[in-house]
């Protein structure tokens, strides 16, 4: 079946089966920037923003969010021209394999929207649901700090 959703600020028809998770529906409809690392709500690679809040899309029934704003990392690029976070990640060396990165970027964005100058502890807490095996998080935390400074200046 086809249903209307709001993804990245646009109304789009997505094909789906009832009972499918938002992650499956997004990926099957070409939003492959949403990554699938576990489908159990435990890695954060499938993170999307729902009305601005970072959530694991693998734990959400697609049908239940028809009326919400869904944002993937590609959508973020259009919102207030926010390439600041991906750039901060790239510059600090926070991207290794990059599989966790779209999710990390979205969690960082959700954090910085609500808390423009987070402490290191607050950053760690905000990223706690996003696991990364490559970087040891050190440069990711650095990236979020850098992004915070830059977003604050804008």
């Amino acid at each position: 079946m086809n249903t209307l959703f709001t993804v990245n600020g646009r109304k789009v028809r997505l094909s789906l089966h009832p009972g499918q998770t938002l992650l499956r529906v997004l990926r099957d409809n070409g939003y492959t920037e949403v990554k699938c690392g576990c489908e159990e709500g435990e890695c954060g690679s499938c993170t999307v923003l729902l009305d601005g809040e970072a959530v694991p899309s693998c734990q959400i029934l697609a049908m239940s969010v028809r009326n919400r704003e869904i944002t993937t990392v590609k959508g973020l690029m259009d919102m207030d021209g926010t390439s600041v976070i991906p750039e901060a990640f790239a510059e600090t060396g926070a991207v290794q394999c990059g599989f966790c990165t779209p999710g990390m970027v979205l969690s960082s964005y959700a954090l910085l929207k609500g808390n423009p100058a987070p402490s290191e502890e607050e950053i760690k807490l905000a990223l706690d649901g996003n696991i990364c095996r490559c970087t040891g998080y050190i440069k990711i935390i650095e990236a979020v700090k850098l992004a915070a400074v830059r977003m604050g200046k804008k």
Binding site: T32, E33, K74, P86, E87, F89, C97, G98, F99, P102
Partner: peptide
């Protein structure tokens, strides 16, 4: 010299493709 990783931006913005994509 710490050159930026050439695929970093495409990875961070979700453009880069992995096998499942």
């Amino acid at each position: 010299y710490s050159e930026q990783k050439i695929d970093a931006i495409s990875l961070a913005t979700g453009e880069a493709l992995f096998t499942d994509d």
